[in-house]
Amino acid sequence: MKYTELTKQFRQFFELPLTPVAVKFNSDNEPNIPHPMRYCEIVRKAAAFGTSYTCSADDMSCASAELALGFVEPAYGDVYPRVKPANTEKMTVEPLDKCEFEPDVVVVVGTASKLMRVAATLSKVKGDMVNARFKGEFAVCGECTTIPVMENKVNLSLLCAGARMFSDYRNDEIVFGFPMEAFVELTESLKEESITKALCGCLMDDLPARLVEAILALGFTKGTDHFLGRFGDEIVRLYIPKDESGKSSSITLHVPVKFKDADNAKGSKDVASCMFEEPMNYRLRDNWVDVILLIDLHEPIRRAAMKTEKFNALVNNGIEVMLDRVVKFKRKTTQ
């Protein structure tokens, strides 16, 4: 099967109990549906029970779906969304993992909490918000099949009364409709560390992406719980401390200076503490002295990082001060 691996990867990553469903307009298959059904019912059966049906206009028991999917032209006025021109003669709906044809649309049924994760990942892949268009009518047919195929856009639907009442959709289920290319792009991105890593709960994830980007742009790289980078002759560490309530409105720069032994380091630390004024700090750690500079941002760091020029100037100035003090510190002490 062409899409078995893709389906497996998607379902495993998002922990979906139901299979994504492949939909093909005007497929080569012959209608085989046992009795007329609603389109949304056919989709859910395929997702839950793995059924594969091909249906024609005669097999549709929902007039809205007939219109939305382009089996018939509207008699009066127009409706949105619908397949234009209405040239659909038959449609095949089957689980994506069993599908041998190239689907036009992939429909994903899941609970709100599962599809929330799909939305978060989709947003990272596209680098934009997920723009959903729905009105609680023409849901699986119009919002999640017609819009993806006619507008080439991923769409989300809260379903419609018919789907919930007659087609066995659970109260907590909603539906995503993907153009096939968008589904493939999303699923393939699940292999990319940059997309999935942010969901793993690492410590760096506590920091807003914009802040991390601002710090990396200054020449730092990510460490374990901090950033580090080479500036001049020194490796400077940047750490974001939190106050007692867990808020951050300052950063600290660190350069650990190594001494021959602990006694030497202690003597040097005492010298440094007397010699240099605020805002420098010197902390003894065995045979090392950590030279520390506190930069007070006077506002939450998230907000400070948004003012790029000011933030960069503050940190760059801090790095300059730090390098200058470290040179003086090393000159005045015996390493």
């Binding site: 790289t221 460490g223 374990t224 580090l228 080479r230 490796i235 560490r237 065995d286 090392w288």
Partner: peptide
């Protein structure tokens, strides 16, 4: 540079090693 308490009080030790990254 060994991070954490120095000298270490445990056999599990963490190091920064930017030159290796470079």
């Amino acid at each position: 540079h060994q991070m954490g308490v120095k000298p270490t009080e445990h056999t599990l030790v963490a190091f920064e090693s930017l030159p290796l990254f470079e």
